[in-house]
Amino acid sequence: MIMDVAANEIQAIRLAAQALERGEVIAIPTETVYGLAADATNERAVVRIFEVKRRPSFNPLICHCSDLDMVSEYAILDPVSLRLAKAFWPGPMTLVLKSNPEHRLPSRTTAGLETVAIRIPAGFSNELIRSFGRPLAAPSANISGKVSATAAAHVRDDFGDEVPLILDGGPTEIGVESTILMVKDGGVELLRPGGLPIETLQPVANVPISARTFEGRLLAPGMLKSHYAPRATVRLEATEVRRGEALIKFGSDTVPGEADCPHVFNLSPRGDLAEVAAALYAALKLADEVGVSEIAIVPIPISGLGLAINDRLSRAAAPRGLSPDEAVLGRL
């Protein structure tokens, strides 16, 4: 069932909380992408997320909390993490923190790690968590490795009746997943670029922020080499569009071959990277729907949200069908 949140938010929260109490997996809107949500403290419910999403068990989940008090029940906030949390939560930032040894989440929620990835979302999902009273494990609401959902219809198309309740909050505002950070050795490691640009984080962190090099085990979602992938193959840095391709572009410039291309998706005619991020996943899904076998994507600047956009596109373009060892060799 798809339920319009705007039509009756109180009713939506009530039905969602009842489903979560029963250990069900539901779909919720967040400001980043739609999430497949279940009670993070209920190991059986968390296992169901992995089953529905077809997600490998070594890939940890992000736990979504309503406030810092709830975060502190399950994790230890070091001084730098606390400074970032106060500045950017609620919002599109996830922190990988040491688990609270006195109140650990189930092993399946944290993929057996001594750390836990946590964020405080904004909007409806925050109100739902506050009402439910416990954190929600909520990875993106898509089949593992495929394009993330930025609309309720995307969730329905991927899962059908496997997800009994889909809460429709309209198109997501940001359109790419959260930025994931971990404080370590006097600095901050960027595990995944996302909806909060590094340029915004740096002045508050007041310590170096660097990309993490691969060390053999995933500490956070979104680090697999092949991820966010449509059915069609993806060709990056395209300076022309070839016969039979769909074209994804932004800005007002015409791409050579565009006039003969029947499937052109302009993510932002004015060249706004926030608009590009918000429209990206929907465009990849639409390109699949028209049946092309290859998608050409023009170069995207690397600054600001461009870092997250390029990260998603590089993983979307990675070879498919990797072995488990090859699949985890992605890095930022």
Rank of each mutant, 00 (worst) to 15 (best):
G216Y: 10
L224R: 06
M223V: 07
T200I: 13
K249Q: 08
E258F: 06
L247H: 06
L191M: 14
T200Y: 05
T239D: 08
E189S: 09
R243T: 15
P203A: 11
R231I: 07
T213S: 06
R217V: 07
T213P: 01
V234A: 02
G175K: 01
G186T: 05
G186V: 09
V255L: 09
T239Y: 05
L224M: 15
S226L: 14
R217K: 13
G187Q: 04
T239W: 03
V207R: 02
G187I: 09
E199C: 12
L201Y: 07
R217N: 04
L201V: 15
P197M: 13
D253T: 12
L218M: 14
G195V: 03
F214G: 10
T179E: 01
E189Y: 10
A238N: 04
E258M: 12
D253I: 13
I174Q: 02
A232R: 02
G175H: 02
D185P: 01
S178M: 12
G194H: 08
I209D: 09
H227N: 04
A205C: 08
G187E: 12
S226V: 13
K249D: 09
T254Q: 13
E258D: 06
R192C: 07
S226C: 14
D185T: 13
Y228E: 10
T233A: 14
T213N: 06
G216L: 07
F250Y: 12
L191W: 02
V183E: 08
S178L: 09
G244K: 12
E258G: 01
V241C: 05
G175Y: 02
G187V: 07
T179M: 00
K184R: 15
T179V: 03
L196V: 11
V255K: 05
V207W: 00
L224T: 10
E173R: 12
T254A: 06
L247T: 01
R243N: 15
E189V: 07
R217W: 13
